[in-house]
């Protein structure tokens, strides 16, 4: 069976899943981990992931390639990621459309920083994705970012930027629907329209996640520390109804619930892939 609904596999659940399959998994269950947590020489954490990967599909989601930056990840980092890919055999490999490295790489900002989507930035991203894919020997999926303000100076809307990047570099797209919801709220845009503009043929994976309100402003924060919100489920259903089934993953990083609760959300995601849901998505505007 192909990839259905997955969950982000975080360290507190790793030992349990390394020991055996979860009860009553959704169809096509798969797992996604943050690659950097396992880019190490050895040890029990890596061995546990390899045990999971021996039984179940595992995707690697990188947080360190800095693909939109003038200082992308060094060759050493690419080599470490490639070795992990060789060990795990990921079913999907992804990272973010962001820059992260400051002062020649002396500060790797553990967040995803925005940039003006200029033609120059597009050329930089294409070169960086080419370099990363060549170094990794694999196709990447690139994730759309969350926005907290419009930095301005754009030549291209985000969906066109992503489409041109994918067509020029051969990468695919990972659409984080929560990021679109958060960005639309924060920038005063129509989330449904943003979803409808995405190039469906290029989308290889979908993320859904939770968010929270910013304490100091009307903004929403892409926090991954709450259950997936109803508007995000509706946007995911709308996207899937247009483009057809894709691997979809419930991403949770903070306030991690019990594995059973995460799997319940994965069941909810799996339901979106059923023919009935694809033909008539509930809540789609």
């Amino acid at each position: 069976m192909g990839l259905g609904a997955g969950i982000g596999l975080r360290l507190p659940h790793l030992a349990a899943l390394a020991a055996g399959d979860p009860p009553a998994p959704p169809p096509g269950l798969w797992f996604e981990v943050h690659a950097e947590n396992f880019m190490v020489a050895g040890g029990p954490r890596l061995e546990a992931l390899m045990a999971v990967a021996a039984r179940s599909p595992v995707a690697l989601h990188g947080v360190g390639l800095a693909l939109a930056g003038t200082c992308p990840a060094p060759a050493r980092h690419l080599g470490q990621l490639r070795r992990l890919c060789d060990r795990i055999g990921p079913v999907l490999l992804s990272d973010h459309l962001a820059w992260q490295r400051i002062d020649g790489g002396r500060w790797h900002v553990p967040d995803f920083l925005p940039f003006p989507r200029t033609r120059a930035a597009l050329a930089l991203c294409i070169a960086n994705v080419h370099r990363a894919q060549d170094g990794l020997g694999r196709r990447l999926l690139i994730e759309n970012p969350s926005h907290y303000a419009d930095v301005g100076g754009h030549d291209l809307p985000e969906h066109e930027f992503l489409a041109e990047l994918a067509l020029a570099s051969g990468c695919g797209l990972l659409v984080d629907v929560n990021n679109i919801h958060v960005s639309a709220h924060n920038l005063g845009l129509d989330a449904g329209l943003l979803i409808d503009c995405l190039p469906g043929d290029l989308i290889g994976e979908i993320h859904v996640a939770g968010h929270r309100a910013d304490a100091g402003s009307p903004l929403l924060i892409d926090s991954h520390d709450a259950p997936v919100a109803a508007p995000v489920w509706a946007l995911a259903a709308r996207l899937l109804a247009r483009i057809g089934p894709r691997p979809i993953m419930v991403e949770r990083d903070g306030e991690l619930p019990a594995l059973a609760d995460l799997l319940a959300e994965a069941h909810q995601a799996a339901a979106l892939l059923e023919p009935a849901a694809l033909l008539e998505p509930a809540g789609a505007a």
Binding site: A68, G69, T70, W99, I102, D103, V109, L113, P114, F115, P116, T118, A120, A121, L124, V151, G152, G153, D155
Partner: peptide, 20 residues
């Protein structure tokens, strides 16, 4: 203020200054 169409390196430099 930011330039209308800043080069990536220029934008990163400004943003990094703010982040710090």
């Amino acid at each position: 203020p930011l330039e209308a169409r800043p080069a990536p390196a220029r934008f990163e430099g400004d943003f990094a200054t703010w982040l710090c």
